[in-house]
């Protein structure tokens, strides 16, 4: 069981007014930014349910954008984010939707550009977050661990090849989550680790056959 820590409860130090709707939104944005890892031409934010209904009042839209721009949860610029030069440089817009199959505080980030990517996440309370989906793959990312995210062609032996490379780095795996679209089609792997992966290790993973996406996602600092 993944337990929360005392530190989660007595933090973050943040810009108000809502941990789930402001700080959680910033953290979702920061993690989505780390996953996308490029400069998009355009971003659409789809806010669902409570995020849609009370998001404006809680600065959820400001928080999501701040995260995408790489601002920390206690950044004093969040209050006036739309007026910052950083925000004026990118093309973004917001949609407010209802879907009771989704979490009360759910968001989709739709990145368009050199790479198109849709990332879905939830703000699950007290500023804690989960990314649930990247494109069509289920993932489980909470920003608490350095994570290796892989998308590759489903075939026997990939998991053991990857974990062997990580083992050569003498790094411990905290959790491993796999999913695939269909047998022999695209598959994804989410590996949360203790510590750091070396460049060499990442290169070796990238060199494996039929690896489409290799992302090393750093844990969130705020």
């Amino acid at each position: 069981m993944n337990q929360s820590s005392i530190i989660d409860i007595i933090s973050p130090i943040m810009a108000g007014p809502s941990s789930s709707h402001t700080a959680g939104a910033v953290r979702l944005g920061l993690l989505a930014r780390n996953v996308y890892n490029a400069k998009p031409d355009k971003i659409t934010f789809k806010l669902y349910n409570s995020y849609a209904l009370t998001g404006k009042g809680h600065g959820t839209d400001k928080g999501l954008l701040a995260g995408i721009l790489g601002f920390a949860v206690d950044d004093k610029r969040i209050k006036n984010i739309f007026e910052t030069p950083e925000a004026k440089e990118i093309d973004y817009h917001f949609e407010f939707l209802q879907d009771f199959n989704r979490h009360p505080n759910a968001v989709d980030f739709i990145f368009e550009g050199g790479l198109n990517m849709t990332i879905s996440g939830d703000s699950v309370g007290a500023g804690e977050i989960k990314l649930r989906k990247i494109n069509n793959f289920c993932v489980n990312l909470d920003g608490k661990y350095n994570t290796l995210l892989l998308v590759y062609e489903d075939m026997p032996g990939v998991i053991s090849s990857v974990t062997k490379i990580i083992q050569e780095d003498n790094v411990n795996i905290a959790s491993l989550h796999c999913d695939r679209s269909a047998k022999g089609r695209d598959a994804s792997m989410c590996i949360c680790i203790d510590g750091e992966l070396s460049k060499n290790c990442l290169n070796k993973v990238s060199d494996l056959k039929d690896m489409y996406i290799v992302r090393y996602i750093k844990k969130l600092e705020s």
Binding site: I10, I13, G16, S19
Partner: peptide
């Protein structure tokens, strides 16, 4: 009141209850 001004507070456990 600092919280609703988007001022800096500590979420403990949440911002609404800060």
């Amino acid at each position: 009141e600092q919280n609703l001004r988007m001022g800096t507070i500590v979420a403990c456990p949440t911002a609404g209850s800060c």
